[in-house]
Simulated assay, not measured.
Amino acid sequence: MTTITLLGTGLLGAAIGQRLLQVGFCLNVWNRNPARCAALTGAGAQQLNQPVEGLEASSVVITVLRDGPVTAKVVGSLGPLGGRCVLPMGTMGISESIALAEQVRLQGGSYLEAPVLGSRPEALEGRLLVMAGGDPNLFEAQLPLLRQLASEPRLMGAVGTGAASKLALNQLIASLTHGYSLALRLVQSSGLDIDRFMEVLRPSALYAPTVDKKLQRMMSHQYGDPNFSTSLLRKDLLLFLREARLAGVNAMALDGLANLLKRAVGTDLDAGDYSALHELTDGR
């Protein structure tokens, strides 16, 4: 039975871990906050005091950590990798992923970036969207594992293309949510009934399913129990802006949205569902 080391057991990492246990993998788990491993250890995972402890028995190391610098630090603590594959599934910058690939090579391992789109429900059901970047042969070798998490894992290209795909998609999440919130604010201020507006929007080419997913939260102003927080949305948007500038892309139109999201820092909105962005578009 294959043993995997999972580093990072937040909302998404824990769900990925649960899925791997359900489909029969042996699992070693580590988190900076050991208490966040409790659900997985209760389901049969082995908890590690240090990330390196489970390395000898593992063939693959999956990381689901907050960002690129944290991932590089934790992976660095593993020391020599002995040919093992490192699969980062969290969001990081294109340049960060390329640098981490080189770090892993110097540590004697192989590297396949595999960021995912989706959250806890999709992870538990094996319906994540996996956007891999790296060597095609390595991708083929890891397909049996990736297919337990996604029905159609995709190889986007070389290292960096998976990271670019994930950042582009998360930027769309931020922009779509912002645009929808602005539309709702104007519609409401005019006295138009939201349901009447939605009857026009849904059959149009402008409609996106995320609109209905977030409408109830925005209308009820309830943002608890998030799968993806305002804080993480802001982090990823700022990362997109940094990478866009490195690539020579003029993304200055997004600076206002980034500044708007910064207003959530230190408030309850930051830990809430990212649709809490709707509270920030109230100009009164």
Rank of each mutant, 00 (worst) to 15 (best):
M1Q: 03
L7W: 04
L11A: 13
L12F: 14
G13H: 05
G17Y: 04
Q18P: 01
L21S: 09
Q22T: 07
V23K: 15
C26P: 01
N28T: 01
V29R: 04
V29A: 08
R32Q: 02
A38K: 14
A39C: 05
L40F: 07
A43P: 04
Q46M: 01
Q46L: 04
Q47P: 03
V52E: 10
E53T: 03
G54C: 02
L55F: 02
L55P: 03
E56A: 11
A57Y: 01
A57L: 11
I62N: 00
I62M: 14
D67M: 10
G68D: 03
P69H: 14
V70H: 09
A72E: 12
K73V: 08
K73N: 06
K73Q: 11
V75N: 02
S77F: 11
L81E: 01
G82R: 01
G83V: 01
P88K: 11
T91R: 09
M92N: 03
S95L: 10
I98H: 09
A99H: 10
L100H: 07
Q103N: 00
L112K: 05
L112E: 00
E113H: 13
E113R: 15
P115V: 00
P115T: 05
V116W: 12
V116G: 08
V116M: 13
L117I: 13
A123G: 07
L124C: 13
L124T: 08
L124W: 05
E125G: 08
G133I: 06
G133Y: 00
D135I: 06
N137K: 14
N137P: 00
E140L: 14
L149T: 06
A150L: 14
A150R: 13
R154P: 03
G157R: 12
T161L: 14
A163V: 09
A164C: 10
S165N: 14
S165T: 13
A168L: 15
I173F: 15
A174H: 14
L176A: 12
G179M: 14
Y180V: 15
A183N: 11
L184T: 01
Q188H: 00
D193H: 04
R196Y: 07
R196F: 03
R196N: 09
M198A: 02
E199Y: 00
V200P: 06
A205F: 15
P209L: 11
P209M: 12
T210D: 10
T210A: 13
T210K: 10
K213F: 07
K214E: 00
L215W: 01
Q216G: 03
M219K: 11
N227F: 12
F228H: 11
S229H: 08
T230W: 03
T230R: 01
S231L: 12
S231I: 08
K235V: 08
L237V: 13
L239F: 11
F240H: 06
F240R: 06
R242V: 12
R242S: 15
E243V: 09
L246V: 05
L246P: 00
A247P: 05
M252L: 12
G256P: 12
G256F: 13
A258Y: 02
N259K: 12
L261G: 13
K262C: 07
R263T: 07
A264I: 05
V265S: 12
V265Q: 08
T267H: 08
D268H: 05
D268R: 04
D268C: 01
D270I: 05
A271V: 04
G272C: 09
S275R: 06
L277Y: 04
E279K: 07
T281L: 10
